[in-house]
């Protein structure tokens, strides 16, 4: 039974080092709500404790740990509605992209697999899964305002799904979005999706179709939120499908 302030003080080191028992923790937390001195003490000691692991020399983990971690997350994301590896914003209804949504759900697992095939992650250059015979891969390169950006495309032809992973994208101007275009061998560009890169300049877009037979894929910046029906500028990020 903890009865006085001194006893609570004695508990603080064990608390910040994570070795107090649950009942002690519960009582100390209650005490902290009304005791400024113990709260300050806890803050000081907590900071000291949190610095302890910095004494350690970083150790290189096995190379496949990163891959396993990201695979586990991707698998979880594929069954989790909060997931964000696939966010194709529908173009204005009722055009084709709007009809993509059920397909998006059906194809989430495929998209995740494809995203990983592209090396989804901060390393960006690592191919975690070798391409299957039914896959085709392409790269989009940025120019102009999107210089340094890249789009990596995995066309899972046998499944009728294409995943495009963008990286290094600048943030669109206020009120604008990025728009992905399918450029056929003949005829006008077709709007495929609008999206906004995340804070890190990345985004993944899933298309419920193969891009086989097209001439190119391209991205432009267009007025938001729905983008444009035809590009209003020269492609800023483009790659041929061949």
């Amino acid at each position: 039974m903890i009865s006085d302030h001194a006893e609570y003080e004695e508990l603080v080191p064990a608390y910040v080092l994570g070795v107090a028992d649950p009942e002690e923790v519960r009582k100390l937390r209650e005490h902290l709500r009304g005791c400024d001195a113990c709260t300050r003490l806890t803050g000081r000691l907590q900071r000291a404790a949190s610095l302890l692991p910095l004494e350690l020399e970083p150790a290189e983990a096995p190379a496949d740990l990163r891959e396993r971690l990201l695979r586990a997350a991707a698998e979880e994301a594929g069954t989790d509605s909060r997931s964000k590896p696939v966010i194709p914003l529908p173009k204005r209804p009722p055009r084709a992209p709007r009809r993509l949504l059920p397909a998006v759900r059906r194809a989430t697992a495929l998209a995740v697999a494809a995203a990983f095939a592209l090396g989804l992650g901060a390393g960006l250059g690592t191919r975690l899964i070798p391409p299957a015979a039914s896959e085709a891969r392409y790269t989009l390169q940025g120019t102009g305002a999107m210089a340094g950006a890249e789009g990596r495309v995995a066309d899972l032809r046998s499944d009728g799904v294409t995943v495009v992973w963008f990286s290094g994208l600048p943030q669109p101007a206020p009120g604008h979005v990025d728009e992905l275009w399918l450029i056929p061998r003949q005829g006008q560009p077709q709007a495929a999706a609008v999206f906004v890169p995340n804070a890190g300049g990345s985004q993944v877009v899933l298309l419920p179709r193969s891009v086989a037979g097209l001439k190119a894929l391209a991205v432009t910046e267009e007025p938001g939120p729905n983008g444009s029906s035809q590009p209003t500028q020269q492609p800023q990020l483009i790659g041929s499908i061949s």
């Binding site: 990163r66 990201l70 997350a73 994301a77 909060r82 964000k84 992650g121 901060a122 890190g200």
Partner: peptide
Amino acid sequence: GDVAALAALYDRYGALAY
């Protein structure tokens, strides 16, 4: 739920965590 952000977190702190 951004998996790429998890990769960035791992690349930043993975060695110390391990």
